[in-house]
Design a protein around this nucleic acid. Structure first.
Lengths: 355, 355
DNA sequence: ATGAAAGCGCTAACAG
DNA sequence: CTGTTAGCGCTTTCAT
């Protein structure tokens, strides 16, 4: 593999000059010499070793992303946002899948320390904040994404889940509903707690008493939404509307409703959360609360890069993003979503017969 | 940041000894010395610099994963498989999102070269095989995942798409269908070509003539499946069954069918492809062809690690995985899928009132 | 069983 | 404007 000394030798200059050309400094290089060097670099397809540069400069061009679940479509969008900004700024991202396991999170923290990453974007798996301390105590800038973290110095970017719960419930109240069921999830982290708080706040503000029997606990799966609605339907006074923890639960609830001959939204209004594309395909009538997932990723990348490159903290290190209310058409297929890659070249000429 | 010399100094040994302890070789270290060193390492929470090790040993513990679309649930599972095996073997994965853009693929190839990754798992974005050559010509072991590649020396792992198309069509034929429509996609890579070839092969084998008017081209979106079915329905003799390129298209077709009052599967049988969980939620009656996505990722990771660590190629470097036929219940919700994280602790005690 | 020392490919200070 | 050189933190060969 060709290295800097080879380039220097071929170009007839010193290795230092090659560096100055590559890095555009810190010393000026004459136009002639620069072009000679660049030509050799091009001809040999030389790529400087990031490893040697990182070792020497005691900095690195890599980021760590610790994420609970790459499989979740919600996080998939976050990843895209993070990776996009990182790429634009010359950073490469290590993907670290914690699988909602805080032991694995800590293992990855150590791996990222060994890799001497420039910074870490951490989407917590549990409420254990040890990974954060372990990173910053070792001098690695870290931000918390998608979660509020109660550490004075900790930067974070999350979504206003309280607001989401409030807006969702307010919407249902304004449709005339008085009995609004909520499907919660096991409380580990702040998301569901805040959403339910928003739900209760809206009820209070509109003078509707909170009925704890209308708040049931569901899990992360479709099945849990399904079962939650079955539970609601077995009540003496079933709710006429549902606020689901997320769209996944909502889909399950919708399925249960259909099975019982209940029409959405004529007989039962449902508001979900997260605006998962698949949910809109399933039920065009599903109203949902959308989070700026892609933007959250982008903002996260931008914030960590600022932390890495600036001596002092950027002005804003604690960001709570607004949610957006998404009301879909209540009839017809949900094809309002504009997607890319929609070009359909005519391939009739390419069609081939099976022999 | 504490380094190896610090450890050596504190433990009262030479830096070399510290290395021998960390690496368990290549030279033996007395039990006493080893434990003394390990204690200091533990107390100082020392993490050796992967960067320095990589520079010195001219090897690295990182892999590159070039992937068209992290957002696609299909690839999300592949990532999990890859990352799982990599983690178990002490490798960290750079995630490189090409976005179906071969220019960006090449940019990432250069970034991975700079990072001196030990190997690359490449899921091609287009039929351009330049990335492969660029990597292997520079001494970076590379395997192609999820696609067949027609290069003698190129290792790959893909799925038997032909078989999938055949099985899907055979299933429909055995249900008694004679007019079976196929929804294709723009042919860029081998997947759709092979699936359609399998479709045609099955028709031939069962003596059903191929009718090109029953093969329509759809894109990657739900919408395309929707439109494809509308096209079929406008024919004088619409098909009584559909083989869709994938479940996404199938969902669109199902939506169109429902809209026209056509029942699935009573009036129209549909077989999809890829077994995307969301699809089964949408339509429990959707039969599909499942690929071993997670296993493909794991096998890919294993293969690249073998290539990295062995002088000569492993026995099998070209693997075509069998598909699996998934027939779902034709009634009721699709809750047969067993998922993890299904524990639902009672949180009633944690419920808090909104103040 | 252990220490000393060369050098991986770079960056940047020092010296012309 | 350019060349020389001292390390960055390790691995590993050479000594002892």
């Amino acid at each position: 593999m060709v290295n800097r000394n080879d380039i220097a030798r071929i170009a007839g200059v010193s290795p230092a000059t090659v560096s100055y050309v590559i890095n555009n400094g810190p010393r000026p290089v004459s136009k002639e010499t620069r072009e000679k060097v660049l030509r050799v670099i091009r001809e040999t397809d030389y790529q400087p070793s990031a490893i040697a540069r990182n070792l020497r400069s005691k900095s690195s061009s890599t980021l760590g992303l610790i994420i609970p679940d790459t499989h979740n479509p919600y996080y998939a969008e976050v990843i895209r946002g993070i990776e996009g900004i990182a790429f634009e700024n010359g950073y490469t991202v290590f993907i670290c899948h914690s699988g909602y396991d805080d032991q694995r999170e800590l293992q990855y923290v150590n791996i990222l320390r060994m890799q001497r990453v420039a910074g870490v974007i951490w989407i917590p798996a549990t409420s254990n904040s040890e990974p954060y301390y372990k990173l910053v105590d070792n001098g690695i800038p870290t931000i918390v994404l998608d979660h509020f973290i109660d550490i004075e110095s900790a930067p974070y970017i999350t979504t206003n889940n309280f607001q989401g719960g409030y807006i969702a419930t307010e919407h249902l109240i304004k449709l005339g509903h008085k009995r609004i069921g909520a499907i919660n999830r096991p409380v580990e982290l702040g998301h569901s707690k805040d959403r339910i708080l928003g739900y209760k706040a809206a009820l209070c503000d509109f003078g509707i008493p909170v009925d704890e029997s209308l708040i049931v606990c569901g899990g992360y799966n479709i099945k849990n939404g399904y079962e939650a609605l079955k539970t609601f339907l077995s009540l003496n006074h079933p709710p006429t509307a549902i606020f689901a923890y997320n769209d996944i639960q909502a889909i399950g609830a919708i399925r249960a409703a259909y099975q019982s001959g209940i029409r959405i939204p004529q007989d039962l209004s449902i508001v979900g959360f997260d605006d998962i594309p698949e949910a809109s395909f399933t039920c065009p009538a599903l109203t949902t609360i959308s989070q700026a997932k892609y933007d959250m990723g982008r903002l996260g990348s931008e914030m960590i890069l600022k932390l890495i490159n600036e001596q002092d903290l950027p002005a804003e290190t604690k960001i709570i993003l607004d949610v957006q209310f998404i009301e879909r058409e209540s009839t017809g297929p949900a094809f309002v979503r504009q997607e890319k890659n929609d070009n359909q070249p005519d391939i009739s000429s390419e069609k081939k017969k099976y022999i």
